[in-house]
Write a protein that binds this DNA or RNA. Sequence first.
DNA 1: GCGGTATATGTTAGCGCTGAGATCGGAACG
DNA 2: CGTTCCGATCTCAGCGCTAACATATACCGC
Lengths: 331, 331
Amino acid sequence: MQTATLAHVARLAAVSENTVSRVIRNKGPIAEETRRRVLAAIEQLGYLPNRAAGALASSSSLIIGVLLPSLSNIVFPEVLRGIHAGLADTLYQPMIGVTDYDLDQEQRLLASLLAWQPAAIITTGFEHTQASRRMLANARVRVAELMDIDARPIDVAVGLSHRSAGVATARHLVSRGYRRIGYVGHDWTADRRAALRYEGLCQGLQEAGLSLVAEQRFDGPSSTLAGRDTLARLVEGDASVDAVAFSNDDMAVGGFMHCLAAGIAVPGRLALFGFNGLEIGQVLPKPLATIRSNRFLIGRVAVEKLLESGERSAEPQVIDTGFEIVAGATA
Amino acid sequence: MQTATLAHVARLAAVSENTVSRVIRNKGPIAEETRRRVLAAIEQLGYLPNRAAGALASSSSLIIGVLLPSLSNIVFPEVLRGIHAGLADTLYQPMIGVTDYDLDQEQRLLASLLAWQPAAIITTGFEHTQASRRMLANARVRVAELMDIDARPIDVAVGLSHRSAGVATARHLVSRGYRRIGYVGHDWTADRRAALRYEGLCQGLQEAGLSLVAEQRFDGPSSTLAGRDTLARLVEGDASVDAVAFSNDDMAVGGFMHCLAAGIAVPGRLALFGFNGLEIGQVLPKPLATIRSNRFLIGRVAVEKLLESGERSAEPQVIDTGFEIVAGATA
DNA sequence: GCGGTATATGTTAGCGCTGAGATCGGAACG
DNA sequence: CGTTCCGATCTCAGCGCTAACATATACCGC
């Protein structure tokens, strides 16, 4: 019953409230016999601890604040899935906010998450407003910054080097004999990681004495539709390209669809390369060549790391969850 | 600073704590001049209300508990997106739990959400344990049951009739001249809505004096991969089928991929029909024939309805967000 | 048998906020 | 001019829990 409180349980078990509290939180020494009595009383009353009271009294809650840029991009639900997996079997609950890639929105959401005195905050990337940084510094919560490891984190970073992934893409395509490489991307003013991969790609090509021979960008978020249309624009403009690196798998799958519809042989006439390693890419008639980022793992590892200790360590930590080239059959 | 409290603000603004509280919550009459002074003090101190204290004192919080069966199926992140959209510009925060289609897990998560005294609970479907129902009845929260409207809800149901969607599928295929219709599905012991669509499909065929001529089910959750392989099994067993209704778009897109790879003409030799209206289906070389369910809308409407009033109405309410046939080019 | 050390429990004072009711000036009214 | 009423504010007692400290009992070695 909603209305049973610690006091009720204490009375029924004939102990003090504090003892009940200690049984519940497994804190301090409790006689086996007492514990049994208390647990029985809890059971009998259907007692549910009031977390708000607990949070107030201890000035810390079992909430993990999660700030995601978007839920439309399948990547973030997968990270969230990892977070949930890491939180399973704990008493922590995630409270999530969606920033729409807007740093001011992130700041507002951060403020309202911190109002719950969460145990930790999980956010994305390294870009935050000055005020956000200050809030995170003042609040004594653990902070994880996910996806990216190409900068110095506040507390913990978990992710992969997108720059390296870009370099790896270039090297892979070059090693496969492609020389006239193009790029099809989306608007990355909000998506810094896509920009990092692009930089890595260019760098990798440069190492081989090459550079992009064509590029085409869609002015909006990534999607299969955008990928299809943007590749169409690219090949229309420059037919001499022999391979295309896409900003991610969504775009690449769209590109593949264009090739199918337009009768462009893949990879004979045009090779395609994505990023993320989404399931959909692997179900195409020819599995997409891509790089697998481990989104689920990123979420889970972040949670595990954060729960490991309530205190930040002296030095920021970086955890590289790595990536793997998926050779596929499109490049 | 983290540490500013109502008392600090009150002192600075030279009013009582309660007045500050009323300014913040926009409750009760406040002189313009006082309000200005209080807001200035809040600003100056960077005051953030402690939600835990507020929740404790008012025994109700600005939390909306959200229970989703899964995050792997893109449908639920989209509902969540709708929920977020509905919550934007309010002070409410969603706290989410993932049940993995397990009613006992749902019950556990429900208990831990209710421990926060949420303003409302959003959950999926009509199946809950006895204990879950009791908790929801005792807690005086609003409750929304999403996705489905084919049963009587506890408080509010928002979704579409999956049975009708199944019937509509049958009628559409029949009206297109298909007579030898097969079914490719996934394991629906957990996914009652897929089962309802199936029932509707059979019912619709029966109305036309037909019945399924073949069916094949994958023993696991839906996925493109499962759809591809399961369609392969179906056509292998019975080559006379002229149209296949899939349990959803993921499965149908997989089926399309099989047809591409195996050189089966779509829809000439085999028509395909999905359910959900996912973007990926519309980017195929031939847009998938399917039914658009309005997931985003379901989430948003549910939130709007719940926030409309803090009290349940006497009679349970059902909100039909409808569905539309997407003719596509595969059937 | 005494201090010392554990183990097990009780007592007390809040945590920061809100709700109910009390208070208090001034406008409206007969 | 006294009464009523209303807008604007204050006072005060908790909400249900936890932290810190106090207490009590048992056991130990010397």
